[in-house]
Design a protein around this nucleic acid. Structure first.
Lengths: 199, 199, 199, 199
DNA sequence: TATGAATGAGTGTTCATTCAT
DNA sequence: TATGAATGAACACTCATTCAT
């Protein structure tokens, strides 16, 4: 019951990596044990987690907590004064966040249908929080009126999100739009959206 | 359910539905047989498909062919003269396409990691084709210079795509941005991007 | 119910060949049908044989009948006057017989344990008949006293028989004893056994 | 039956017995498990053997090792001084060896065609070794010239071998030649072959 | 805390056989 | 006479989980 035993962490690491690579169902308890340095098939895993599903739950939670620690960086963003600069930082930050949690993202997308209860919280934290914060930033820093903010955030973050779904999950990089160009285009798009059009 | 449709088709229907709901691994051959009106576990499925995997392959192919009939995006769009109207149609068309193939989309996202060879072609057809055609439309109709077109298409279609990944796969509708608002915002964003900014 | 339909024979041919190559259990009805020019798995075989086992039974019987036709040649043997020549012919004849029915021999050896009832008759005809005739020849032509004849035949024919079991079934040819040498040695051995030893 | 012997051995015993009785294909893993005191169909066998085929392989190897202990034929034979006595011992020894490994012999004959790779080594050890040693004995003790030795061994051992194939595998005992008579006849035959004929 | 051994339920797949057409 | 489709029973093998040691 000592929740910080090294073995427990090794199991979590191995499990999340394998879940990300092969899916939850595609990963056997024996495989996880082997990857964690335990005897495969001996059930040593069950001294640390009551169930394979409990392990998934714990793994997702741990990754989310790790994310929370990083999310404070967000506060650094504000107050640059330059809208373009702040947008660029925002984009890079969101993409980096998604990249850092590619594993988690993959698990969530893969298991979303079969275990909605488990994934619900994770999605709320990984997606909704970012969404809410970005919406708030749009209102406060860019002066976007309330009713527009959510919609603009939805479109803007969606573009970033899907870029990572494509590359990380579907292994598709449409044509040859590299990250830099993608971000630059996104920034310009958002910038035009946030500045009044002089018609 | 309708025992008059040919068995092969009933199997395909059942399989694609179940694959979409429970994933490929999560769906047993017996389940598919039962859903197709065959005796579960008797292997009647194997008179029509050599392998469970061959069934997946055939199912994906069938759905893609069904899509191909609808595919000629530019024909639908062309010649309205009004950029805003054409963009709105574009958005609605792409979203409708994704909605109509929610099942296929779900399978592709879920199985992309474990069976990349199978999904590769499907992705190319479902994602890349749309991408290529939209890029072409941007160049020809909206007069976007070549080097920008791909990047703009990437951002624009990405936003649409992710909206469906969120709602269809993750069952997340961030805040309360309904479809109409989402499309309107997207159209405005694209429109500003495609018309010269008078600085 | 026309027992001489070409199809029936094609099935028998295919079945016996496949049974010899892969064993009875290792050969599926569908395989036999395919090899006989019928649609595999459609059960066309069952218009000619009530059961897979009935097919085996009929196949063995047919091969045995074929053998019976040849066995009269045996009468040609007698009366050469020269013991050595007659022994040589005997050896060659028995070996040729075993070679010609290698398929049948293989099936019998393979299925002997699992279906003793079927194989019983075949063994009696293929082995015992030859044994009885050879014993009779020993008595009549070589003048071997009754009580010795059976034992000598047993040892002599056994040597021939095992040579074919080794090469045909076990694919073993011990060292480099070619057929000619083998027969010559066998003939000398039998000849010494059949002529009174002058001590 | 004896639940105290290690499970692995009980599985091996059961498997070899059943393989001998019903053939490899004819024996199901569940049957073996039941005979070994495990729950049939639960796959407990797979904790000890990776595959049904690996089990066969291990079983054959174990039986061969058991044989090796007894194998030193020439040590048993040598130095009696009397050729007849030594031949009698030889015959009895070889027959006893074949009787003791009737199970193995049956498996080898039955599976030789379908799994040649597995049986190859076994044949080499069970047949060829005996053959080689007997050949050597013929040369050294009985003074048979090199070129004759192999052929004589081939005929002589063949007779012994086939006697066991007949009785053990085909359940045929031609006429009523009992073992004693058979051996006596064989010894006389070999003896005449090994002593110079005074013409 | 870790292991070796076991188990119940299930996996995809094969196959001999039947039957309406 | 032949076929397409179906079925019941079996198959080898996997896996999450338990438990005595």
């Amino acid at each position: 019951m000592t929740p910080s035993t090294p073995t427990r962490d090794r199991i979590l690491d191995a499990a999340m990596r394998l879940f990300g690579e092969q899916g939850y169902r595609g990963t056997s308890v024996a495989q996880i044990e082997r990857a964690a340095g335990l005897t495969p098939g001996a059930g040593g895993l069950y001294h640390h987690f009551r169930t394979k599903e409990a392990l998934l739950r714990a793994g997702i939670e741990r990754n989310l907590n790790r994310l929370d620690a990083l999310r404070d960086i967000r506060r650094v963003l504000g107050g640059l004064g330059d809208l373009r600069a702040e947008l660029t930082l925002s984009a890079r930050y969101v993409l980096a966040e998604l990249d850092g949690e590619e594993e988690l993202l993959r698990i969530m997308l893969t298991e979303a249908r079969s275990r909605p209860e488990i994934v619900e919280d994770a999605v709320r934290q990984l997606v909704n929080t970012t969404f809410t914060e970005f919406t708030a930033w749009l209102r406060e820093s860019a002066g976007v009126p309330e009713e527009r903010a959510a919609a603009v955030a939805s479109v803007g973050l969606g573009a970033l999100f899907s870029s990572r779904v494509m590359s990380g999950l579907l292994k598709v990089s449409p044509v040859g739009v590299d990250d830099e160009t993608f971000v630059a285009t996104w920034v310009e798009m958002m910038h035009r959206m946030l500045t009044p059009e002089e018609s």
